[in-house]
Design a protein around this nucleic acid. Structure first.
Lengths: 227, 227
DNA sequence: CGTCCGACGTTACAATCGGTTACATAACTA
DNA sequence: TAGTTATGTAACCGATTGTAACGTCGGACG
């Protein structure tokens, strides 16, 4: 998932016009548990399978020789990941929160003869991915630190939050440094900004990995400070 | 094209293992001229066609309400663009340099019955796009201004430059502001850094839109200032 | 053919945001 | 519980931006 503003998550929508919402279920699907900290694959590995997160959370990331890291995306339930580029995975993939994934053999994406419906489903998911990444470009290229963080929390609250009397409770299954590397910031800036949002009454920090969004509207406004 | 470092342009490579390099040529292909400044489509338009640049250069971009702009990619010959997200285009597309494009009806991507070979080709191009975008995340999130610009010129030189005795001649069909909005910088920073690279003998500015890369190795080194 | 005009590009300087560093505190893990 | 890793806080500093003035290029039009 690209935790970005427009939040147009459309993996279940049609590529073009009509929208067959059924999730195709072929014999090619294989369920699998994933453990906390486990590496599902590494950048450069032969891409044998495409993954769909069912429960739990994973992290897609890349590291440069110099050690700088970019978190490419977080995989939440419903997200499809591990698309092959030139036959290989293009990122590392690690489990942040244990759960289960469904795997599809990569040939389903390659050819549409075996399982046409499943093939369509994966192509649709890839298109959705493209759109999400384009949104995230705007975040990385043209938003300041507070906007990025507000946008991140805003989308996370909308997609994974659980409503409660005081607002929306959101679980952050990743480290501060993961958020930082996802948003192109330092972990200190994440801390600073979280504190600031708490002081302003927008959020509450229940534990380090559980926050309460008190004022979702303010959060959304902060993510679009521009006119 | 995502003008990024690893330059693993794989639109013509296979999704997974085997690589059928033939460019499928179906009756569904339609050739069309594009004029300088023309808008091929806008964000939100119904996506009827997918485009492949044959000659010329186009620009994909998005604009926020507040007027901030992000250039998503530049489309050079060989690049496929206009992938639908939820049935709609997700960026604006304008012509920077007149040329020709091939258009494919979007249903070719939707279904694989009409033209399986062409369908495969477009899916492959989409996967390549995903990879390029992931590379670009690293540029936007974790590289400083000089690194971004050096990486940009480095890749452009490798992909579109023409060798000459003194180095590699590169045409920049876009404005400084386009480069800025692509790399998440200000146009002044582009100017300043170009000047600096000229002073250091790495490049020459022949005209504002034609540069000569004198020291490609230095340029590449500058794009990876870290290990 | 030359001049004018407007858009684009360059340069210099001051303001600022976010990174860096350093250290304190909190949360895991063994 | 001790040790280690992650997070929070604060002061400082540097890279990049924003602003503003100037330069330059190319097309329009007299």
């Amino acid at each position: 998932m690209y935790v970005t503003l427009p939040d147009n998550f459309t993996a279940d929508a049609s590529i073009s016009v009509e929208a067959p919402k059924i999730r195709p279920d072929a014999s090619l699907r294989a369920m699998r548990k994933i453990a906390d900290g486990e590496a599902l694959f590494f950048e450069g590995d032969d891409a044998a399978q495409i993954y769909e997160v069912v429960t739990g959370v994973v992290r897609l990331s890349r590291v440069t020789r110099g050690g700088r890291r970019q978190v490419i995306a977080f995989g939440f339930p419903g997200d499809v990941l591990g698309f092959p580029v030139g036959g290989r995975y293009h990122t590392d993939c690690d489990v942040l929160q244990a759960g289960t994934v469904v795997t599809y053999p990569v040939r389903v994406l390659d050819a549409c003869t075996d399982a046409p419906e499943l093939h369509r489903y994966l192509v649709r998911a890839a298109m959705s991915e493209l759109g999400g990444m384009q949104d995230h470009f705007m975040v990385l290229g043209r938003k300041c630190a507070s906007e990025r963080i507000a946008a991140f929390l805003s989308v996370l609250a909308a997609r994974t939050g659980t409503p409660c009397p005081e607002g929306t409770r959101v679980r952050l299954p990743m480290f501060r440094s993961d958020i930082a590397d996802f948003l192109g910031l330092s972990s200190e800036t994440i801390s600073r900004t979280f504190t600031r949002l708490r002081e302003d009454g927008v959020i509450d920090l229940i534990t380090t990995k559980d926050i309460l969004v008190r004022d979702a509207a303010a959060l959304r406004a902060l993510s679009e400070t521009e006119g």
